[in-house]
């Protein structure tokens, strides 16, 4: 009895498969989301014949840029095992504040940083409640959601038009991305940048790995000497900044700010993140998955408008898809724990 056999089979095909599972099991839900997206694309193309056109696919990013940005921030928070219900309201509030400051004649170079800072401050407030006062994330972010919604109405009870050329430029510019009618707007570029930065942060920095560590086991992460407190606060700040940025993008998208903007967006965001393969218990998931989740969400919306059906079907379909995903996740988890 000299040692425990810990041999890793290498050459055989089953060994390679096992190796994949032992290393990359957390990517499986993301691949599943990708599969659904592809099936949807192919199915919609077969049914409509004109679905997979450069214009439609390009608009997918354009129409959902704000959601994509929110989803990246939400992914950080959910990975720590938390949740941020405030993102929709913070997006509305920063949008309202930005629009009113612009109306008052402040330059865009001041207004946008202010919007991001306000978002960061709201996130920080949530993080402080969660981290220092042991308030459940659900409740803390709920309070922030109420506060932000109230503040949005305090700025103005009615919508404010935005005429600042720089903001409108974000949306109206169509950059030809590839031959044909592929196009991308600066808002879309922003969203993609946020995804890339988010993915790099999570994969290649101690901050990112600590986020995963907290979601895996907060107590252990602390014992390992990782900066748990700072990281958790920062996760909510990231989400807040993303909400602020989404405020900019959404204002540009609609050309106006309205205090009721983004009601229910927090649910769409959570749904997109979960469909993208992130576990709500934290510790497992990817920004790239969240992006796929957002694209699935956007495609459903597009398909339903292609069908000319009522938009209430969007929510029903998203609900059903969410259900499908969590049931599948549940089965995967049950399988692996039975091993």
């Amino acid at each position: 009895m000299t040692g425990i056999p810990v041999t890793v089979e290498r050459a055989s095909a089953s060994g390679a498969l096992r190796r994949f599972f032992s290393r990359r099991a957390s990517w499986i839900p993301v691949l599943a989301a990708l599969a659904i997206l592809i099936v949807m694309f192919i199915g919609a193309q077969a049914y409509f014949g004109n679905f997979l056109t450069p214009r439609v696919i390009s608009s997918l990013l354009l129409d959902n840029a704000y959601l994509l940005i929110l989803a990246v921030g939400m992914t950080f928070v959910i990975l720590t095992g938390g949740i941020d219900l405030s993102v929709g309201a913070v997006m509305a509030f920063t949008g309202m504040l930005g629009a009113s400051l612009l109306r008052d004649g402040l330059p865009v170079g001041v207004v946008v940083p202010v919007m991001l800072l306000i978002g960061a401050a709201m996130g920080l407030a949530v993080g402080i409640m969660v981290q220092y006062f042991d308030v459940q994330p659900f409740i803390a972010s709920l309070a922030a959601m109420f506060a932000a919604r109230g503040l949005a109405f305090m700025v103005s009870l009615s919508s404010i038009r935005v005429e600042d050329p720089a903001i409108l430029w974000l949306q109206s510019t169509r950059i030809q991305a590839a031959p044909g009618s592929w196009f991308i707007t600066p808002t879309g570029i922003l969203a993609i940048l946020v995804v890339i930065v988010g993915a790099l942060l999570l994969a290649y920095t101690r901050f990112g790995r600590t986020i995963y560590a907290i979601g895996g086991n907060e107590q252990s992460a602390r014992l390992m000497g990782l900066p748990v407190v700072r990281t958790k606060l920062l996760a909510y700040v990231v989400s807040g900044v993303c909400a602020g940025l989404a405020g900019v993008v959404f204002t540009a998208y609609t050309g106006a700010s309205y205090p009721l903007n983004g009601i229910g967006t927090e649910l769409d965001t959570i749904a997109a993140v979960v469909i993208g393969g992130t576990l709500l218990t934290g510790g497992s998931g990817y920004v790239l998955g969240s992006m796929i989740g957002v694209l699935v969400y956007g495609s459903i919306k597009t398909v339903i408008s292609f069908l000319g059906a009522e938009q209430s079907w969007t929510r029903i379909t998203i609900g059903a898809l969410l259900l499908l995903f969590v049931v599948v996740q549940r089965i995967i988890v049950a399988r692996s724990s039975r091993r």
Partner: peptide, 18 residues
Amino acid sequence: IDLLPNLSVAENILLGRE
């Protein structure tokens, strides 16, 4: 065991001084 089940073995050994 106060390790992180969701991370790789390498991270569990070196995280903090990676």
